[in-house]
Amino acid sequence: MTDPALPDDRLLDHEYDGIREFDNPLPGWWVWIFVGSILICFPYVMWYHLGEGSSVHDAYEAELAAYAEQLMATYGELTADDATIRSYMDDDIAMSGMARLFRSKCAQCHMADGSGNIGPNLTDDAWLHVTELADIAQVVRAGVPDKGMTAWEGRLSETQIVLVSAYVAQLSRNPIGGKPPQGDVVDPWPPPPPEQP
């Protein structure tokens, strides 16, 4: 330990297998950050557990409410009748959002492009359990338990069910080979309602 570059601090008199220790004080910044990290606990607990700070669940409720409000402001409360579903089939903004919803929920069985895999091809004009637009919403809502189709009621709002039904309905405008048609061919969907001024 006779190194010329050895710092000139006070050494303690003990020694272990040649290892010695300096009697240096605790670095000031170390002490104060440590004290600060202890002190910060009190206001944190006061605010988030005893005061007004929002809990995890409050924050989540607020997030849900904001989305519900957005949905309401955009679409109001929709009912799943033929006319309502038909009216959204040409709403590009709504349909681009539903393309995403379709990918996240429906694509697992119907594939992302709707061409069918476990579930039927949704891009042809043959349908199972469906003769008119409102039937699509009913299949989405209640599922087809015998055939493995999941019931989405309670997990999608009624407004979302209307919109995704419209998305499914308009898929047949661009038929994709995919899974061969299943079920019966149904009449083309009705024409769009007259333009609202």
């Binding site: 330990m1 050895l6 040649g18 300096f22 009697d23 240096n24 605790l26 170390w30």
Partner: peptide
């Protein structure tokens, strides 16, 4: 670290007091 680093560097440990406080905390 407290054994092999001072051995390899042939240097005394920086602060005994810091050892005590950071060990217990």
């Amino acid at each position: 670290m407290y054994y092999f680093l001072p051995k390899a560097a042939n240097r005394p440990v920086f602060s005994y007091k810091l050892s005590i406080l950071h060990f217990w905390s």
